[in-house]
Computed example of a mutant assay.
Amino acid sequence: MRFERLLSNDRITRLRLLRQLMGLGSYLMFLAPGLLAVHWGWTAFGYGGLFALVATALVVNAGFFIAIRSGYSQRFRDATLLAPQIVVALALALVTMHYMRPEARGVMLMLYVAMFFFGIFGLTTRQFLRLAVLAVASYAGLLVYEFGGYAQHTPMFRLELLHLVALVMITVWLSFIGGYFAALRQKLADRKDALKDALAQVKELSERDELTGVHNRRHLMRALERERQRASRVGATFSVAILDIDRFKQFNDVHGHQIGDEILSGFCVRVQQCARELDVLAREDVEEAFGRYGGEEFLLLLPHTPLAGALRCLERIRTDVEATPFHTSAGPMQVTFSAGVAEFRPGESSANLLARADAAMYGAKRDGRNRVAAARDDGARVGQLE
């Protein structure tokens, strides 16, 4: 639990910290061979010197950890501080090898090369090659420093020269391979993001009505069920309204389906604009609460709204729709709608709630259309509100 608190809640920062801790683990892995080298007398320092190097590595890594954890590293282009961490690791390995006898230097040289593998997490081939040049030049400088005053035809120097040639070949090879894998990893990440966006778009399209752009029946049923569960859980209430455009078939028969489509789209825009202006819906997302239920029928959810408030809300929408004709390619069209409203009752299913609202809507149709009606068993009258 304490380790979880140490890491960030941010997914990206958490991932960077885990990689940084992996780098720290690489230092600890070579502690065992370092202890053996000291024990066998293959180093110019004792246990104190070894632990001083380890302590230095821990302090430096703690600094990198704090820089990443605090967000300070985000001001740099490479927020992971990957290249600086590798450079520091190479420097510590170089110091360690300087104090190693030839019998143990080959093992430490493995640590020197192993640091390159962490570049796979994000370095490009060009960055890899820069590090390779730095690593080779640093090791060559170490050899010049150590053998500058000695004969260079000795077996020891030839062995170190062989190490240097091998280092050049391995680091260059790792640079191209590491760069390739880093590029592949980035490509996969980009494709993953593209797929995620595509899936989100498909999901959005699957829940949108193609003609009007508002949410379709599938989305509305999910939203209704969520609202029903919430109301049941906290003991709240909400209402549902089913709106049906009056005499919509006549628009299609007389003016054609294109005009009918324009009226459907215009109706959605009008209802959404009016709903956003209502106090009862001001705190809610109208885009989520309204949609096409089917044909010329629409559904409006009114969260935290009892029946009386829902009736006033629908009446204001009805008045607004009736007051201003719709602009179509065939000229202005007078449009009205009838609506049925039902308030959620504790323990009631979504299907029963919709059935009561639907029955109220048909009651409004029978009573002359262009009116808002409440479900009869809600105790409210059916008819046009004044």
Rank of each mutant, 00 (worst) to 15 (best):
G141V: 10
H153N: 14
A79E: 13
D78N: 11
L167K: 03
E146G: 00
P84H: 14
L142I: 01
F147Y: 14
G149L: 03
F121N: 11
A93M: 02
V60P: 01
Y150L: 09
F118T: 07
M108Q: 11
I120M: 08
Y139W: 03
L123I: 08
G106K: 04
A104D: 02
R101Q: 15
H153L: 11
Y112V: 00
M108I: 06
M115E: 13
A137T: 13
I120H: 00
R75C: 01
M100D: 10
H163N: 15
H153D: 15
D78S: 07
Y139G: 03
Y99F: 13
V60C: 10
L167Q: 03
M110Q: 11
T125L: 06
P102M: 00
A89H: 14
V88Q: 11
F116V: 02
Y139C: 04
M108H: 12
L109S: 02
G119Q: 07
L131G: 15
A132D: 07
T80E: 14
F65C: 05
L109C: 01
V165L: 14
M108E: 06
A55Y: 04
Y72S: 06
L90T: 13
N61G: 05
G149D: 04
I68A: 05
R130W: 12
Y99L: 09
M110L: 15
A55G: 13
